[in-house]
Every structure is written in C-alpha cells, then in structure tokens.
Design a binder for these strands. Structure first.
Lengths: 195, 195
DNA sequence: GTCTATAGATGGATAGAC
DNA sequence: GTCTATCCATCTATAGAC
C-alpha cells in the first residue's frame, strides 16, 4: 500500500476512517497503533493528524457516524402498520443493516469503554434512542392488546441482545442466507411477545 | 493499598488475579498496564512476574478459570427432567451464575480478540462446549416433540445472546430482583421454543 | 498533503539488592 | 517475596523539510 508523496485529500480522509474501522474492529481500539492505521492506508503516521486531532476523536467519529446513519436509516422507513408489522420491520431492518456493516456494529458495542466520559455520553444517548425505538413498538403492541410480554423494557433489551448476537456467528458464506436468518429472527421475536 | 516488603504468597496470587479481572473488565486488556494491576494490589510491577510469566498468560488463565468453573458448576446440576424443565434450569443457572460474576463474564465475551491464536483455540473450545449444552437441550425437546423452533442452532445462539445481554443493563440495585429477572427470561426462553 | 525525524511518555519485562 | 532501578521497545503527537 506504499504511496508516493502527493495530494489525495478526497480519498485519504475516508481511507483513514475505513482502515481505522477495520483495525479497531479486528484488534480493539487500545491494541491498534496510529502507525498501523497509517500503514494500512499507505501514508506515514504523521499524515493522519491532518484528518483527525487525535486517536480518541477518530474512534468517536466512527461510532457517532455509524449510530447516526443507523437512526437516519430507520427514520426513513415508513411508520405505518400494526405493532406486529412494525416489529417485523424492525427485526428485518436491524439484521439487514447490521449484517452489512459488521465492523461498525462491533465497534459500537465493544468500544464504549474506550471513549472519554464526554464522548461516551453522546454515544450512549444515540444508542438509547435506537433501543427506545424497539421499546416503543413493544409498548404500542402491549397497549393495543396485540402483544403480551412479562416486562416491556426487559423484553426490548432481550430482543436487542438477541439480534445483536448475530454478529458472533454470522458468516456471509455460511449455511444460512440473510433472508433465511431474518425470517428465523422475525419468528423468534414474535414469539417473545406472543404476536 | 501500599504495603511493606514481606512474604504474602498465599494472598498476593489471588489478589493479582482479582485485580487484573476487575481492571481488564473495566478498561479492556490492552488498555490496562501491569503497573496499574500492581498498584491495585499494592505491590510493585516486578512482583507480578513471580505469579505469572506474562500479561497474556494472566488474561488466558482468568478466562480459562472462569469457563472451567462455569462448566463444572453446570455439570453439578442433576440432569433429570423433561426438556422444558432442563431449559428452565439452564436459564436460571446461567443468569444466577453470570449475575454474580459480571467481570468474569464480561472478560470471557469481550477479550477473545486479545488472546494468542493458541490460547484462543482453547477458550473457544470451552465456550462452544457450554453453548452445546443449551443446544442439546433444544434438540432433545425438538426430538421428543415438546419444543418447536425454526432452527435449533440459531435458536440456541439467539437464546445465549439474549441471556448474555443481561450484563449490559443489570444493576444489583436496579428495579428488578435477580429472581424476577430469572422468571422473565424463563418465560421468554420457553416462548422461543413454544414450550 | 505527505514526508522524515523526533520529542516525550509509557509500555512489558528483567536484574539485583534486601 | 518484594523492592528499586532500568533496559528497550513502542506509542501518540508534533516540527519542519519538500
């Protein structure tokens, strides 16, 4: 990936974020050096600081960007439908979105510990907004009688954890297609609320 | 925590593992220095190497010890009962065991990336043995007709992820008692297999 | 915009006194 | 068994040439 000197501002910035995302997800934020990121991009370590003030901000922006994209993508999905349909839409959306961005998802769930307190508060807020979307669906279903569940908050957290766990075993070349996986999880989610 | 020179072999060894577990769980393996662990115990950094050959082995032994204890504790529970009862026993066992050892559980799920390939293989083998215990219960229930589920392997992984996710939000001083949480998760697990 | 070079701090691990 | 002192590698971040 070595590269001669020259101007490449338009591609280097995204390339740095892409490389950092890949390496952070693979080895963990604290275990990855700025030199490794630079080497992956094909620049020297010093050049990274033209695009990020420091390593912490690089991590923070990756996580914030992912969660804001996630919330924006969910907001784009029409809200119409009964709670059971909303639940199916959420499960399919979540899996479809996450299976295509395993590194970003992994980062957002695993590197919370490595954020400064201020940055953590921002990321945690975004994460809670997303979880609240599912909780609202469950509560709506509970109120109109289409769902029955022991505890809306716990059921929402259990469902989020179940969905997030897919990244542990999912392989693109594995036994199950994404569509088949979505179908299985839709059934499991519906059963959890007796939809 | 400072301490004068002297002989404390019986207490220092466990104290080091306890401190390492706490700090690794809180900040992540790569972010914790040997000096920090030593300071937490109240000894100098050099003294740690009387008890562990290196930092990697310290992490590995913590994870191995936890998983072997977990498997031994589950093996101690009588096997008798129908699949539905076995499932309830597993859910209660898992939550009871994990809610009391949040740091060890967190470590075992989060620090796999920081193991050497040889150590990873050992830990991954132990983890799979544990997951297989649940999968066997689901398969037994499927075979005797007491459970119905879309896919035993996926359902087992979904259930494990759901249970493991409790550590994300559980607080000992929170709204729900451990027993109440166990009851909720037993119901959710049963619903997932239509028990 | 990227490079080389390096400051300044911190890391894991070891040696030898007590 | 623990301490002090230290080696040497590596890290983040910066300075200045091109």
């Amino acid at each position: 990936m070595a590269r001669k000197a020259g101007s490449h501002a338009e591609i280097t910035g995204p390339a740095i974020r892409e490389a950092a995302l890949k390496l952070f997800a693979r080895s963990g934020y604290a275990a990855v050096s700025m030199r490794e990121i630079a080497a992956e991009v094909g620049v020297q370590a010093g050049a990274l600081y033209l695009y990020t003030p420091d390593k912490q901000t690089l991590l923070f922006e990756l996580m914030r960007g992912h969660l804001e994209d996630l919330l924006a993508a969910w907001a784009d999905i029409p809200e119409a439908g009964a709670p059971a349909d909303r639940l199916e839409a959420f499960v399919r959306f979540h899996l479809g979105y996450h299976l295509n961005r395993p590194d970003a998802v992994f980062l957002a769930y695993m590197e919370l510990r490595n954020l400064t307190p201020e940055n953590f508060a921002v990321i945690e807020g975004l994460r809670r907004r997303y979880e609240a979307e599912l909780e609202q669906i469950l509560i709506a279903g509970h109120e109109d009688g289409s769902f029955r569940m022991p505890d809306a908050r716990v059921t929402a957290m259990a469902m989020i954890a179940m969905l997030a766990g897919v990244h542990v075993w999912y392989r693109p070349d594995g036994r199950l297609t994404p569509d088949r996986i979505e179908r299985i999880y839709v059934r499991l989610a519906r059963r959890m609320v007796k939809a």
